[in-house]
Each structure stands twice: as C-alpha cells, then as structure tokens.
C-alpha cells in the first residue's frame, strides 16, 4: 500500500478551529491513501455524511483503517481532495437540481482541470458520486465549453454522439436484455420469414 501521508494541499491552520482540526484517511480503489481535513470533507455531501455517521475520534482516525472509496482511483481522488482542500470553508451551493445560470471557472479550478479528457470524465463521475456540487458545476461547465461555436457534425465528433441508428440499436438491445422472451419471439419471427411463411401466427 502506498501512503500519501501529507495533506493534499497545505492546510491553513489558523483558519481552522482547534476542535475541527482533524484529518480523515481515505483509500482509493488502487490503494492510494489520502489525509483530508474535516473542513475540506464538508464540500462532499456523501463523505461528510459518512464521517458523521462513523463518529470517529482523533484516535480512531489514526488507529482504524482508512475509509475505502471503492470506485474512484488514486489519480482522480487526488484531484478531488485537492479541490476540496482549496475550497474548504466556502459556502456549498444547495443541491436542488438546478444549474447556476452563469458558472465562472476560477483560476485554480481551471489549472486543476487542465488534464486529459479521460481524467476529466472520471473527475465528473467522482464529483457526482461524492456529491460535490460546486466541483460538478465547474467540471460540467468545462465540458459545455467544448461545444462553443461547433457545427452539429463537429459536436458529434467532440462528444462521441451516437447516431439515430446507433441509439435505436442500443435501445433494442436494452429492451431485449430486459425481456429475453421478446428476443426469442423476434428470432422465431425471423426464422419463419426465412422459411417463407407469410404470417407469424
């Protein structure tokens, strides 16, 4: 197990009340460990609820195993916690399903997201899973900006959009997967057609 003992971002200790000065340990699915301040964790609704439910003391945090985050890898989790540390203490937007009309991407976030699109994709999944509202806002804005001034043909390429035919095929496949009997009926129908039958029934 590789351990990253230092906090992801330098902690401004003066800004943190003494009783809140506690670092939780998290482990990614590729066994990378991170120490994250309690205040930074508040940016993630999912993690905040989790640590509240666990009720860890300072000793527990040190002595118990790191909290496993099974579906996020170390590279992505590092970005997530860097973001949370940088924005700790900031007001958290209410997650009412709405999207702010104007989303400005701060300089720090822009630099943090100056990554390949594969990692950006994982970062968005992580922000969604961990319910980090503002990180989701800025990362989605970055993806939205990729559309700027593009033609439909260019958008299809940038966003790897399926064609109508591909969407139809995917829909059929999903329906068949849900209802194996439907596939059997269709195969039977095709077979009868091959045999020259005019009517299925």
């Amino acid at each position: 197990m590789s351990v990253e003992n230092a906090p992801v971002v330098d902690v401004d200790e003066a800004a943190i009340p003494v009783e809140k000065k506690m670092y939780y340990r998290f482990e990614s699915n590729d066994k990378k460990e991170f120490r994250v301040s309690e205040l930074a964790i508040q940016q993630s609704e999912t993690l905040n609820r989790l640590v509240e439910a666990m009720g860890y003391t300072s000793e527990d945090v040190e002595n118990k195993p790191a909290i496993a985050i099974e579906n996020i890898d170390g590279k992505t989790l590092k970005l997530v916690f860097q973001w949370c540390e940088h924005h700790k203490g900031e007001a958290i937007p209410v997650d009412d399903g709405s999207v702010p009309k104007i989303v400005e991407i701060p300089e720090f976030d822009a630099k943090l997201m100056d990554i390949d699109n594969g990692l950006l994709f994982k970062l968005i999944w992580a922000a969604d899973y961990l319910n980090i509202v503002q990180l989701l806002n800025v990362s989605c804005k970055k993806v939205a900006n990729m559309a700027q001034g593009k033609t439909p043909a260019q958008l299809r390429r940038v966003y790897l959009l399926p064609s109508d035919e591909e969407d139809e095929a995917a829909k059929r496949a999903a329906q068949e997967a849900q209802d194996p009997r439907a596939r059997e009926v269709e195969e039977e129908f095709e077979e009868r057609k091959r045999q020259g039958g005019n009517s299925f029934f």
């Binding site: 969604d128 390429r157 966003y159």
Partner: peptide
C-alpha cells in the same frame, strides 16, 4: 481531436453540461 463521451456521463452531469 479532444473528445469526451457526453452520453456516458451520469444523468445529473449530462443535464448539468
């Protein structure tokens, strides 16, 4: 080209985008 599979994002992120 710089690509990202928009349709494979979580539903909430897709609508956000």
């Amino acid at each position: 080209m710089n690509t990202i599979p928009l349709h494979q994002l979580p539903d909430k992120a897709y609508i956000h985008t």
